[in-house]
Design a protein around this nucleic acid. Structure first.
Lengths: 132, 132
DNA sequence: TCAAATCCTATTGAGTTAGTAGGAATTTAA
DNA sequence: TTAAATTCCTACTAACTCAATAGGATTTGA
């Protein structure tokens, strides 16, 4: 029941970009140093974010990344779903339709549905704006 | 960010015991069959619960397990902490005192503290009584 | 042209998960 | 007294995930 380094580092990176969003493009080298994260590992994580429209990128000399939108438009839940994968706390809640044969009579299911709700409600309520 | 089979199976086993608590000692064989869980695996999980005062045990012929207390006294959070280990959503929140060097200025920490709170509040609010 | 940066993909050691397996100890019924 | 049914204890393992490391291709500004 742990958030992995991918999700944690991604959030720290985006907070860093939000804090420095008046500085133009920020290189991974700078972020990696400020955040004490391996630059090579951060490269992989940023590619996950880069598949979405969250970031603007500049390659080559003086290149780097910047936020594509206002910090208030980055919900923590979206950041984590991109980097951690499905946030469902049990696998039978990963899909829209519960495929588990026991779903119809499973007494424990309501625990997981409720847990899923409080987690997702909470993470939906926070944006980068709240963290800088 | 998943609850493992240990926690899920333990909860299902205890719900089963709560539902059948007027039937005397219930064998793992019966529970394993009703719940479609490997008996041998369930043996390991029940030993985790058995280290606490949650269960009464009878060995030998016609032996089995029963709840030691009223279902309302079994909080889901306690069941999961015993079987899953520490439920903290990030490792820096596992101990009473946060040992992370970055804790003093980490902007992401408040996300994890808040998430930890909503998870633990929710899981503390549910008992076996609510699930039968 | 060179240096600094992103982009892309392969590999790997360590740890975790979800069991399987075998047998010892205990208890009751026949 | 013996056999069967049960818990108790511990070792093992295949598959998977995590957290990087690594090497180089590509792009771009000075």
């Amino acid at each position: 029941m742990k958030i992995s380094t991918k999700g944690r580092y991604a959030l720290r990176m985006l907070i860093d970009l939000a804090e420095n969003r008046d500085q133009g493009y920020i290189s991974l080298k700078d972020i990696a140093e400020r955040q004490s994260i391996s630059r090579k590992y951060l490269e992989q994580i940023v590619q996950l974010l880069n598949k979405t429209d969250m970031l603007k990128t500049s390659r080559g000399y003086n290149g780097g990344y910047m936020l594509a939108k206002d910090p208030s438009e980055y919900r923590v839940i979206d950041i984590l779903e991109i980097t951690e994968g499905n946030l469902a706390c049990v696998s039978c809640l990963e899909d829209e339709v519960n495929e588990c044969k026991r779903a119809g009579f499973c007494k424990s299911l309501k625990v997981w549905q409720g847990l899923d709700n409080v987690i997702k409600n909470y993470l939906s309520s926070i944006t980068l704006q709240d963290l800088i």
